[in-house]
Design a protein around this nucleic acid. Structure first.
Length: 574
RNA sequence: CGGGGCGUAGCGCAGAUGGUAGCGCGCACGGUUCGGGACCGUGAGGUCGUGGGUUCAAAUCCCGCCGCCCCGACCA
């Protein structure tokens, strides 16, 4: 392909609303353009990469034995009412009416249509198990789209759904998909990790996220170097610290200190000359409307996912100021749990395991501008439940083996869920088993954000000059920079020849044949980030040579023109 | 939805105290250049987000609306 005929509008400067590195590079390199918040146009170069990812995913889905289908993006309200998500799914579900005032939505995912499709034709255990998948546009009306195509409202996804007659079959499909995902991300050339994850709004029994590792990733991952356990920090189970034996002689009596206008943990610690791990943070939530109190150490963060799981509630929200005051009898920021149970016996107090070991700590003083020092929870606070409630952080130990976690960051590119019977039961996707009884199918669902994978590839692999595509995803394999193409017939002859030879061997080439200065051509090619670069110019042609450079490397080498194609072939991954 | 910021040429920006719009990049034409985003000259390109108000006069001041971005809840 000649660049002069291709549509690659590159930009020297990124638009100011591009917020992430990959978003900036995708726009600058002419992969995408933005039409509106969270809505993108994919240009030829970007689409090529998208298709490469799609092809890899399709091949691995087929290899795993899944069958491709194509489902509508506009879906009827009735199906969503059957699953209960018409009301349960938040505002991310874009709902609308057709001319007959019938309700529809733009599909954010496809459990409903897929389950509906399957239940009509599947009636016997003899037909199970199987797995269907599709590629398609998904729409989620995100409150705040961000990070370019990584969190767009409209995005391209592969979603697969497995249906099984029993747990064993269901687990086998989960494993097949898990393995297929391993192959997909390996083939994409990624550094990645499969981690245990929270099941979130999709619901279900258990799940893994496939994280593309990148320092700029949105998610933090805890991994155990000893037993291999890896989990999103939202989920990572932490070993409770060993109980500390408290020496009664150490304990000091509680005492109130004036701390006017001091609100943050850091400020309190500084004013009172204690470290933040001595501070007991009190948080008030409403769990399905009922107020609850949570305590965590000042240097820790409460993990709402864990708290929610512990409470087994549907909705967990930070309490309003009124509720806070009502529950604690104090002002926001100055409540302490000492004596709280005595004052308000109906309120449940939950505390993170680490709070148990605080001795002579600091807590809110239950008065405006006052904190209480020498609070020792074991003596002074009636905690109902101690549990693992904190976000995993540096120094935490693996709940399974006790080794200290390592932390990395990643981008969630794929997610596998074991759904169980959540949708099949509510939507009546039943089958008849050997014993003539009807039971719901056991489902699994498996997603890969294809458009997000493209952005993730860039987040993981780039430098100051631009993108560095992993070879399997590169829009073209070879960049052929033909300097003096327009003015030197020899350059034109050899460049055309090499391009034709490469293309004849199935190697894709993008040749810059434009009548531009060399600097512009180099800069553009670096930005676009094709893995292999060949330069042909008056200079090299005079010596019967060309110049080769890998995008990842700094140094280039000279090759004879006659051997260029063969040498290049050696370097290209098959 | 709550808090903060912004909307002026394709992109990045400047336009105190109101006087009818400019710069850099990019684009077109001519010339000099030609291995890491050259230089000179000429030129095209703008309902200043939008609706209203104040005023002799509004990009500028006031009000409404819309859009976009950042911080929080969602997620592939």
């Amino acid at each position: 392909m000649k660049l002069s005929q291709y549509y690659i509008p590159t930009l020297k400067e990124a638009p100011k609303d591009a917020d992430t590195l990959s978003a900036k590079l995708m726009i600058r390199a002419g992969l995408v353009r933005k039409v509106a918040s969270g809505l993108y146009e994919w240009l030829p170069l970007g689409l090529k990469v998208l298709k490469k990812v799609e092809t890899i995913v399709r091949e691995e889905m087929d290899r795993a034995g899944a069958c491709e289908v194509w489902l509508p993006i506009v879906q009827p309200k009735e199906l969503w009412e059957q699953s209960g998500r018409w009301t349960f799914y938040g505002k991310e579900l874009l709902r609308f009416e057709d001319r007959k005032k019938a309700g529809f939505c733009m599909a954010p995912t496809a459990e409903e249509v897929m389950t509906d499709l399957v239940k009509k034709d599947t009636t016997s255990y003899k037909q199970l198990p199987f797995c269907l998948y599709q590629f398609g546009t998904k729409f989620r009306d995100e409150i705040r789209p961000r990070f370019g195509v990584m969190r767009a409202r409209e995005f391209y996804m592969k979603d697969a759904y497995s249906f099984a007659a029993n747990d064993q079959q269901a687990n086998e499909w989960y494993q097949k998909m898990y393995d297929a995902y391993q192959r997909v991300f390996k083939r994409c050339g990624f550094e990645f990790k499969a981690v245990e994850a929270d099941t979130g709004a999709i619901g279900g029994n258990f799940s893994h996220e496939f994280m593309v590792l990148a320092d700029t990733g949105e998610d933090a991952i805890a991994n155990c170097p000893s037993c291999g356990y890896a989990a999103n920090t939202e989920k990572a189970e932490i070993q409770a610290p060993a109980d500390v034996k408290i020496d009664p002689a150490e304990l000091k009596p509680m005492e109130n200190k004036a701390t006017p206008k001091v609100y943050t943990v850091e400020d309190v610690a500084e004013l009172l000359h204690v470290s933040t791990d001595k501070i007991i943070k009190l948080l008030v939530f409403t769990a399905d409307g009922k107020p609850v109190v949570a305590l965590v150490r000042g240097d820790h963060e409460l993990n709402e996912f864990k708290f929610k799981a512990l409470l087994k509630c549907n909705e967990l929200e930070k309490a309003s100021e009124e509720v806070y005051t009502q529950v604690t009898g104090s002002f926001v920021g100055f409540a302490g749990a000492q004596g709280l149970k005595e004052k308000n016996p109906s309120v449940m107090i939950y505390a993170d395991n680490y709070v148990k070991n605080i001795v002579n700590g600091v807590s809110g003083g239950n008065e405006k501008d006052v904190h209480t020092i020498n609070v020792t929870p074991q003596r002074d606070i009636k905690v109902d439940v101690y549990a693992d409630l904190k976000m995993a952080c540096a120094g935490d130990k693996c709940a399974r083996c006790g080794a200290t976690f390592n932390f990395t960051r990643g981008i969630e590119a794929g997610h596998v869920f074991k759904l169980g019977t959540k949708y099949s039961a509510s939507m009546g996707a039943n089958f008849l088993n050997e014993k003539q009884t009807s039971e719901p199918m056991i489902m699994g669902c498996y997603g890969i954000g294809i458009s997000r994978v493209v952005a993730a590839a860039i987040e993981q692999s780039h430098d100051d000059f631009g993108i560095i595509w992993p070879e399997p995803l590169a829009p073209f394999t070879v960049a052929l920079v033909a300097i003096d193409y327009a003015s030197n017939p020899d350059v034109k002859k050899y460049a055309d020849q090499i391009m034709a030879d490469l293309e004849a061997q199935g190697i894709s080439v993008l040749m810059d044949d434009r009548d531009e200065r060399p600097g512009i051509k180099f800069k553009d090619m670096d930005l676009i980030g094709l893995p292999h670069r060949l330069v042909i110019s008056s200079r090299t042609v005079a010596d019967g040579q060309c110049e080769y450079k890998n995008r990842k490397e700094k140094e280039s080498t000279r090759w004879n023109l006659t051997e260029a194609v063969a040498k290049l072939k050696e370097r290209i991954q098959k």
